[in-house]
């Protein structure tokens, strides 16, 4: 018990607030709806936000590096579409996944090169990429859903390991890896350094461009992982997948305490909590039957509160 209290005391205050809100929402919802506090609901709740959750891990690094990556909203459906097309035309599933990841890595690479060479804000570069990819997705699919995937693929996709679906498994593994790397691995630590103060990072011998390239490529690649998983979950792919997903991803990262205006601030554990928080809000609205129109209002308010907490209340002197 003492250990728990110590752990809570040692925690970032903003994360404490989010954790507190999570508990409050859980209690209120549990009283409102008997189905809320069930294993089934929590599974569905988590699975409803796993794609965003996976993408938010990599987005955290981008934002900590002082940038942003809107293009994930185009990479996600593109990856789902490419995966579905390749699987349908008989490619080996794992080869198809590899190709999708390589394509995504390439897109991340191009994002970063455009940013570096043209010296324009990553928001503009990746927005251009988002539009390009959304158009490309429509062109590839002709606006039609790609379905009727081979039964073997559907069987593989529906398999569960220790009762966990592939997306859940992927998220748990990726979140753990990301968490550990963000605390220990040198190039991940460099992201904080570069984001906090690029000039002094460069002076201390860090190759800042390598850091930027890594974060944009990772961001694209995790969006591709989410896209591949989407094909597996829905047994289909469509250019309309992932509408507004980039905003949900960035919101999760921001609620988790990362700063969109100043690099170097943010944490993986915060982002995980932020993702969990958004997952619960979306679920709570559906469970309570309150009109979903208020969902965005509520999410927006939460974001403002998170930012105010970070910049005004818990500001480190």
């Amino acid at each position: 018990m003492n250990k728990v209290i110590k752990a809570v005391r040692g925690m970032d205050k903003q994360m404490g607030v989010i954790l507190f809100l999570l508990v409050v929402i859980t209690i209120v919802m549990a009283l409102d709806n008997p189905y809320f506090l069930t294993v089934h609901n929590f599974t569905v709740m988590a699975e409803g936000f796993l794609f965003e959750g996976i993408m938010a891990l990599a987005m955290t690094l981008v934002i900590v590096s002082g940038g942003i990556d809107i293009s994930v909203g185009g990479v996600f459906p593109l990856s789902a579409i490419l995966m579905a097309l390749m699987v349908r035309s008989g490619y080996n599933y794992y080869l198809a996944m590899l190709i999708v990841l390589l394509v995504a890595a390439m897109i991340g690479f191009i994002n970063n090169e455009l940013r570096r060479i043209l010296k324009i804000h990553p928001m503009i570069v990746t927005m251009a990429m988002l539009l390009t990819l959304r158009g490309l997705n429509l062109a590839i699919t002709d606006g039609r859903v790609i379905s009727r995937l081979p039964l073997g693929f559907i069987e593989m996709a529906n398999k569960r390991l220790m009762g966990l679906s592939w997306p859940m498994l992927a998220y748990i593994v990726l979140a753990m890896v990301w968490f550990v790397l963000s605390k220990k691995q040198r190039s991940f630590l460099h992201v904080y350094f570069v984001g906090g103060n690029p000039a002094s990072a460069a002076l201390s011998g860090i190759r800042t461009e390598n850091v930027y390239r890594m974060v944009y490529m990772l961001s694209s690649m995790l969006a591709a992982v989410a896209g591949i998983l989407a094909t597996m979950v829905y047994n289909s792919a469509s250019s309309n997948f992932g509408q507004g997903i980039e905003m949900r991803v960035i919101t999760a990262v921001a609620i988790g305490g990362a700063s969109l205006t100043r690099g170097g601030i943010g944490s993986i554990e915060g982002t995980i909590l932020g993702s969990l928080f958004l997952a619960m809000i979306y679920n709570a609205f559906i469970m309570s039957g309150v009109s979903a129109y208020y969902q965005d209002v509520f999410t927006g308010l939460m974001l403002v509160i998170a930012v105010v907490l970070r910049t005004q209340v818990f500001r480190k002197e």
Binding site: Y35, H40, G48, Y234, S238, F241, Q243
Partner: peptide, 25 residues
């Protein structure tokens, strides 16, 4: 009765909504 579903034309979001509504049985 209740009206649920995403504001976007996004089949993947709609599928999630179905799963979450189904929990309420």
């Amino acid at each position: 009765t209740e009206l649920q579903g995403p504001a976007e034309w996004d089949a993947s979001l709609e599928a999630r909504t179905i799963d979450q509504v189904a929990v309420k049985q």
